[in-house]
Design a protein around this nucleic acid. Structure first.
Lengths: 198, 198, 198, 198
DNA sequence: CATGAATGAGCTTTCATTCAT
DNA sequence: AATGAATGAAAGCTCATTCAT
């Protein structure tokens, strides 16, 4: 049996990714068999040779979304703070490469397109990142690197707020001049245990 | 079926508000004439005696959304920091009273339901709050009350991140134990120019 | 809105006549309760206080149509030719006074608005004029006043063709310069047994 | 339900022609997506895979109507009278083959179904036949073949009256015994310059 | 594998008609 | 008598999906 990647599998990825793009750019109401087929460059009936239904396409899209977000969760880094930093920087790389993905983590468009089980899966995926960050924050607080005068819950919101800002600024065409590293420095000033020099 | 008669203006508000609720809870794909009419408790044709089209209903909903968000922008407070605090606390009151409204400020569901001009209006409304906050931050920084080691842009994201967290926690049924005042204290620790003594 | 109260019978005539006008000007697809009510200057619900249904309104309109067309059939004139001439001239008076009526005799708009029985009635009304004319033609032929080298059926078509031309020219805004009497002279040249000396 | 597949262009013609038939037989109020689909033998949604809207279907129908009427205008005949005769006889052939078409030239049902631009097009089509006939009449009058004691406008009405009679008699099931040639002879007696033997 | 054609279900909207005031 | 509000039925149209080629 040939182990080569079948054109079929490739097409499926292509379709799922196109669905993510349409969702991120135009929202769930605009994700139809027709718009999707057009985005991919095939006839609408062709979609259903690769997937049994639109729901299945959205499920596949959710899968791609999950894989991408998962790839930011690098547990191999030594300390909680380096883990957090690596996560943050990786997400920015993702943001440059596929801006649609992060936006879908911050609006509900993927959830709106999903049906029942799918939307729970989206929430689970997003929660995995949240848990990862919260674990880092808790550990960092235990080691004294991260400030303990604020509940980790709040610190998480600070971090996700900054990331959301970055993710959305790309929509509005607002070019953000700062590099990911500069942004991390800003963020770190907010999270670090000892106040940095002001 | 029993006929519930209501004066036109009242019915229109009722419909627009129901639309906001459906959008916040179930998303734009679920906002149909039928679901909306059911939520209001009338026949679907009745909607079109009060509005010429679904688009017009969404426009009215956007109007209600705008009024509500606007009501938080109290420019009468004396100092930038008290303005900011008043804004923050007012938004929390809004959150308790009509949780759907804040959620719609943070996901794209209202935008997805709107058509063309409408979605621009939603963005404009959200931007008005953003500008208000950013103006407060800039002024507070000028008066030395707000820290100047971080760009106001970042401080804005910190604040909106905390508010988004509060707005969304109400969805997941995660009851947040802290009072708005406690949350403001947390936020203030992040924004204040000098670390508070505690 | 100012409420105009009118005695029932008058209102009913007003409504039926307005229906005829809408039919003649815009066709059966445009005759709706709303457009009709607007033409009359009342609310749509008001129509149904005077008639049980739209069908009833169309029936009343057909009645008015029938009365008007009937009024041209003057059987008191002595000879077939004077009867014919009187008919022709009377129809032209009608055309000036209520141009919509004759047009409805030549297109199918009243029939399209009527339901079953109604459309048969319209046909019957039109046929009554036709029979009147054909009777005149037959008689006139018997008396030798009207040419006999052509079947009366054809002569009838000549006459109705001229009348239709007059009726429709009023739509297109084509002002016809000739007087009814001049037109009758033309027509008579076509119908007369012997060519007129002129 | 059995699926009848047809190439697109053919189906479009089929639909447009069915629309003409419904219009001629039952009028614009009866031309609905459902009745039309039934007449064609497909589901109503199928219509909209071939046309974007009912308006577009009516436009196509108008196109077919125009082509058919145009085919009668044979400018190659040598003299005005033979042109007129050829036109008359061709229209009768059309009448036998597709009786609905001529009826639509004499009632307003196609206009009523059309929207704005469409109805102007219908009038333009009908006017083209009128102009053709009027040109023949004018020329024939110049050559002395056609009587000049009556304005050509009237002679046109005579001709169109006879044709309308023929077109409508087919509705009422009134079988007209005369052949087209016999009818032309009648008509010619009315138009010719010198009175024929009576 | 791909696609043009076809369709049932569902959506927005219009319309005639009813009801409460 | 008149009207604003309400509604069921049907219209036009969209959409996911199936089928035949």
């Amino acid at each position: 049996m040939t182990r080569q990647r079948l054109p079929g599998a490739e097409r499926r990825h292509q379709i799922a990714d196109a669905a993510l793009r349409i969702l991120a750019d135009r929202g769930a109401t605009q994700l139809t068999a027709l718009t999707l087929a057009r985005e991919v460059g095939v006839a609408d009936a062709t979609l259903f040779r690769h997937f049994p239904s639109m729901d299945a396409i959205v499920d596949a899209a959710i899968g791609r979304f999950g894989e991408a977000l998962e790839s930011s969760l690098d547990r191999s880094e030594a300390t909680p703070v380096t883990r957090l930093r690596a996560f943050f920087l990786h997400r920015f790389k993702l943001l440059r490469a596929r801006p649609e993905l992060l936006r879908l983590a911050f609006n509900d468009r993927l959830i709106d397109a999903a049906s029942g089980a799918g939307s729970a899966e989206v929430r689970a995926i997003v929660n995995r990142s949240r848990s990862f960050v919260q674990a880092c924050l808790l550990e960092g607080r235990a080691t004294g690197e991260i400030r303990s005068d604020l509940p980790p819950r709040i610190l998480f919101l600070v971090m996700s707020g900054v990331m959301r800002g970055a993710a959305l600024s790309s929509i509005d065409g607002i070019e953000d001049p700062s590099t990911p590293e500069e942004l991390w420095d800003c963020l770190w000033r907010l999270l670090a245990a000892a106040p940095l020099q002001r």
